[in-house]
Write a protein that binds this DNA or RNA. Structure first.
Length: 434
RNA sequence: GCCCGGGUGGUGUAGUGGCCCAUCAUACGACCCUGUCACGGUCGUGACGCGGGUUCAAAUCCCGCCUCGGGCGCCA
């Protein structure tokens, strides 16, 4: 739109055209105000009924909330206006009228349930808080990309339509690919390994993953955004270094560049980047500390996976981000390498936020024979993964990597109660549209 | 996948067998109001998810269905 001025840029003394949504009309009798909102903020448009053209007043005050209008007029300094300036209109054009009964209230005076908000996401995103979440999400991805670049990693894109899954076919969405069975990829895991073993060495990918698990919780999605890293000649410890750096710089960038958004979410006062270095707690120490909290009815023994309740107890005990390292080999996937001096212990690690798991990673099994053995032990046919395993015959360096759940990162950072808040159009057990 | 809890005007809610031709807020409509900033005031419109059952009487109890949310498992 030509000659449009953002409301935030309207300076006293200028004649401007602003365009946006009607946030509210306040009619006080002889004087009335229309609050116009655009992506930069709001500005007040003043109507003095005795002194202005009747038709102009009628148009300006007759327009329904959330209609799109453009207003041309003089910007004046006015201490009584909310932003210190207001516009005296010469013309008001209704560009797109809105129905009077809205399915939710973007001004936030009346709450709406998440389900109602998601059904009407466009309107929902006109609200300050929802908008702020996605601006911060955007900053999160930007900051992560910068951090990866600092770590010498190249951004890659791998296929989302695949012939086989990462660990078998049970939790994959099946699709038909020109008459052949195919699946939506649950993880870029195998592909990024193949690329790490190429001349690119260090790679990252930010993209969708698809999981057909029928869970129904505030922290699971069936389509999520995975932030993946894989580095050749990296061990688990070096991979954790990169992970910590990425997570920390996301927080730092958000703190630095998203002040107003944090304000909108009422987080500005307490928001701070996590304490570093992130403690690295061995699995063995983790179960001991969980048992010591006394939160669990039954004591954990070596080899148990950590139940949700245990993760929370440990999270409360640690009080910040932390890694859990050196998991028992048997509860980590076969492609995670075991310690050379102890086959019972894997190099797998998780990065935990006090509320939930954020990352899982580890050093990979890069030795061909051991990899094939791993497939067989897992009950998988190595033949089906030949495209993957064969590359391990041609000089596959040791390598390690990890994946962050992008939505979980945003969710925990912003203290969102439901992961769906962090996705524009979430896909969950029941939601397929919008 | 197993388990639990909800569905009341456009939106968010109150309501545990008769006090409910259903509460409150907001939105919407009409009128009043010249500095609001969640503007205020008066009046008004508008709802018990669907189907069946129990009962003299059902928003309320029972059954089925639909739908939403949560816990666990599993995961990111």
């Amino acid at each position: 739109m030509e000659n449009r001025t953002y409301t935030a840029d309207a300076e006293p003394g200028e004649t401007v055209t602003v365009a946006g949504w009607v946030h509210e009309v306040r009619d006080l009798g002889g004087i009335a105000f229309l609050i116009l909102r655009d992506t930069t903020g709001r500005i007040q448009v003043k109507f003095e009924k005795d002194e202005m053209d009747d038709e102009l007043v009628e148009t300006g005050l007759g327009v329904a909330r959330e209609s799109v209008v453009s207003v041309t007029g003089d910007v004046e300094e006015e201490p009584r206006a909310p932003t210190g300036v207001e516009i005296t209109p010469e013309t008001v054009d209704v560009i797109a009228p809105a129905d009077t009964e809205l399915p939710l209230d973007p001004s936030g005076k009346v709450d709406a349930e998440l389900s109602t908000r998601l059904d009407n996401r466009t309107l929902d995103l006109r609200g300050e808080e929802s908008k702020a979440i996605f601006e911060i999400r955007g900053e999160t991805l930007r900051a992560a990309r910068d951090a990866f670049r600092e770590a010498d990693a190249t951004e890659i894109n791998t296929p989302k339509i695949v012939a086989t899954g990462t660990e078998g076919g049970t939790e994959l969405f099946p699709i038909t690919y020109f008459g052949r069975e195919a699946f939506m990829n649950q993880s870029p895991q195998l592909f990024k390994q193949l690329v790490a073993g190429s001349g690119l060495e260090r790679v990252f990918e930010i993209g969708p993953i698809f999981r057909a698990e029928e869970h129904n919780t505030p922290r699971h999605l069936n389509e999520a955004t995975s932030i993946d890293f894989e580095g050749a000649f990296c061990d688990a410890s070096e991979a954790m270094d990169v992970c910590e750096q990425v997570v920390a710089s996301v927080y730092e960038s958000v703190a630095e560049n998203c002040e107003s958004q944090l304000e909108a979410l009422d987080l500005a006062a307490e928001f701070e980047p996590p304490e570093r270095p992130f403690p690295r707690i061995s699995y063995e120490e983790a179960i001991e500390r969980i048992n010591a909290t006394g939160e669990l009815d039954e004591q954990l023994v070596w080899g148990d996976d950590l139940p949700t309740e245990g993760e929370k107890a440990l999270g409360a005990d640690v009080g910040g981000h932390y890694f859990i390292t050196d998991w028992p080999s048997e509860i980590k996937p076969f492609y995670i390498k075991d310690h050379d001096d102890d086959p019972e212990l894997s190099t797998g690690f998780d990065l935990m936020h006090p509320r939930m798991e954020l990352v899982s990673g580890g050093q990979r099994e890069h030795r061909y024979e051991q990899l094939i053995e791993g497939f067989q032990q897992q009950g998988l046919d190595p033949e089906a993964f030949e495209y993957y395993t064969s590359m391990f015959k041609y000089g596959m360096p040791p390598h390690a990597g990890w994946a962050i759940g992008g939505e979980r990162l945003v969710m925990t950072m912003l203290e969102l109660s439901n992961i769906r808040e962090a996705v524009l159009f979430p896909r969950d057990r029941q939601r397929l549209s919008p």
